[in-house]
């Protein structure tokens, strides 16, 4: 790489905001990989729309993190000039698109969480995060509706679509626990009313997920072993490849504009 990574002063609020920004950017980038490849034109547009919603969320969160940090970083530097160990997104969201069923199950697991999360964050003591939440909640609500409808149709569709959807659920299930984890730095923000306790969202998340999966004639795995590490920067091998593509232009031609 032709240009060095930035350093980030990860105070609790900066870190908290960056984690959510990274979630939105990485999932948004994954969805952008479908552009021109979706099973049908209508779905191509739907996936790109969701990706753009998430990119918009990422931009607002990065900009806010930059303001809070106050060290001259900005949204582009956060996105383009941090290496893989500096990214804080959920492992779930960096998982490759796989087939359409896997992309939809990933979207469904996350959107079912994001919908609840952003709705709860509208009451955050941090006015900026509350405002971002109010905008993001409507977007996430639609992502949840769209992915839910697909889960039902895939699961209750053909033999093949059912098998692919079940395989996707089985594969991604172990990545869902990380959404509800909290570390010491987040605990302080939760106590201050800035952040919401994700564990409090889990019963409703599980109810939503189990309801849709049941309607789809699919099943949730019995295993409760959960993968973790993304929030601390320990990622799967997939994120490095994603970032090398996402960052190649600004790393090769620093400051390039068009």
């Amino acid at each position: 790489m032709a240009i060095a990574s930035i350093t980030v002063s990860e105070t609790p609020l900066v870190l908290y905001t960056l984690r959510r920004a990274d979630d939105a950017l990485i999932l948004g980038h994954r969805l952008s990989e479908w552009c021109g490849h979706a099973p049908m034109l209508e779905e191509d547009m739907a996936l790109a729309n969701m990706g753009l919603d998430l990119l918009g969320q990422a931009r607002e969160l990065y900009s806010y993190a930059a303001r809070v940090e106050g060290k001259g970083n900005d949204e582009d530097k956060f996105a383009y000039l941090r290496d893989v160990r500096q990214y804080r997104n959920l492992l779930l969201l960096e998982q490759p698109n796989g087939d359409f069923a896997r992309t939809m199950v990933r979207q469904f697991f996350y959107s079912a969480f994001a919908d609840l999360y952003w709705r709860a964050m509208m009451k955050s003591a941090d006015a900026t995060l509350a405002a971002i939440a109010a905008k993001s909640e409507k977007e996430s609500a639609y992502h949840l509706r769209h992915s839910s409808e697909w889960i039902v149709r895939l699961g209750d569709g053909t033999e093949q679509s059912h098998a692919r959807a079940q395989t996707a659920i089985d594969h991604l299930w172990a990545f869902t626990g990380e959404m509800f984890e909290v570390d010491a730095s987040e605990r302080a923000l939760i106590d201050a009313g800035v952040a919401v306790a994700p564990a409090s969202l889990r019963p409703q998340w599980l109810k939503t997920v189990a309801g849709v999966v049941g309607e789809a004639t699919l099943a949730l795995p019995k295993s409760d072993w959960m993968q973790q590490g993304g929030r601390e920067g320990r990622h799967s091998e997939h994120l490095g490849h994603l970032l090398s593509e996402l960052q190649s232009m600004p790393r090769t031609f620093p400051g390039a504009v068009w």
């Binding site: 209508e42 779905e43 547009m45 739907a46 729309n49 639609y142 509706r145 769209h146 409808e149 149709r153």
Partner: peptide, 12 residues
């Protein structure tokens, strides 16, 4: 799905 696709295609 038609309603959702219409939203995604024609109200962007």
């Amino acid at each position: 799905m038609a309603l959702q696709a219409a939203r995604d295609l024609y109200t962007r």
